[in-house]
Amino acid sequence: MRRAEAHVRRCMEKSGATIKPLVVTLSAGELPSVRGVASGSDASRCVREALERFGLAVSSGQRQHTFFVAP
């Protein structure tokens, strides 16, 4: 998760998105949901990219994780 958080932080810095803690809900078989931001936002895109890059997913049920991406 630390590498994914670092990836999200770098991605958000490049896109100029506001850097803040992001609460992410991971559900089996669904796209991750980032609380408080639109699904098409830069923050959501950065989180999805990081999770995919590092193969982070849940096999069943649901889990929440807070990405601490503050500078």
Rank of each mutant, 00 (worst) to 15 (best):
R2W: 01
R2L: 12
R2V: 10
R3S: 10
R3E: 11
A4P: 06
A4S: 07
E5I: 08
H7Q: 11
M12W: 00
M12A: 11
E13I: 07
E13Q: 13
K14P: 07
K14S: 15
K14T: 11
K14I: 10
K14N: 11
K14Y: 06
S15W: 00
S15R: 06
G16M: 04
G16P: 09
G16K: 02
A17V: 05
A17G: 07
A17C: 10
A17Q: 03
T18D: 07
T18E: 13
I19G: 04
I19Y: 00
K20P: 12
K20L: 12
K20W: 00
P21I: 03
L22C: 10
V23D: 12
V24Q: 02
T25S: 14
L26P: 10
L26F: 04
S27T: 15
S27C: 14
S27N: 10
G29W: 03
G29E: 05
G29L: 09
E30Q: 15
L31K: 14
L31C: 12
P32F: 03
P32C: 13
P32D: 06
P32Y: 03
S33I: 13
S33W: 02
S33V: 15
S33M: 11
V34C: 09
V34F: 04
V34M: 06
R35W: 05
G36S: 12
G36M: 08
G36C: 13
G36T: 10
A38Y: 05
A38E: 15
S39M: 13
S39P: 13
S39G: 14
S39L: 12
G40V: 05
S41N: 07
S41R: 02
S41Y: 02
S41L: 07
S41M: 07
D42T: 04
D42E: 14
D42I: 03
D42Y: 01
A43M: 07
A43Y: 00
S44E: 10
S44V: 08
S44M: 11
R45M: 09
R45Q: 10
R45A: 11
R45G: 15
C46Y: 00
V47F: 05
V47R: 01
V47I: 10
E49C: 09
E49G: 07
A50R: 00
A50D: 02
A50S: 11
A50W: 00
A50N: 02
L51Q: 01
L51Y: 01
E52A: 13
E52V: 09
R53M: 10
R53Y: 06
R53C: 04
R53D: 11
R53I: 04
F54R: 02
F54I: 07
F54E: 07
G55H: 01
G55P: 08
G55W: 01
L56D: 02
L56H: 04
L56S: 05
L56W: 02
V58W: 00
S59D: 15
S60Y: 05
G61T: 02
G61N: 02
G61Q: 01
Q62M: 06
Q62G: 03
R63S: 12
R63I: 03
R63A: 15
Q64L: 07
Q64E: 14
T66C: 14
T66P: 13
F67K: 00
F68M: 12
F68D: 15
F68T: 11
V69F: 03
V69G: 05
A70C: 15
P71S: 10
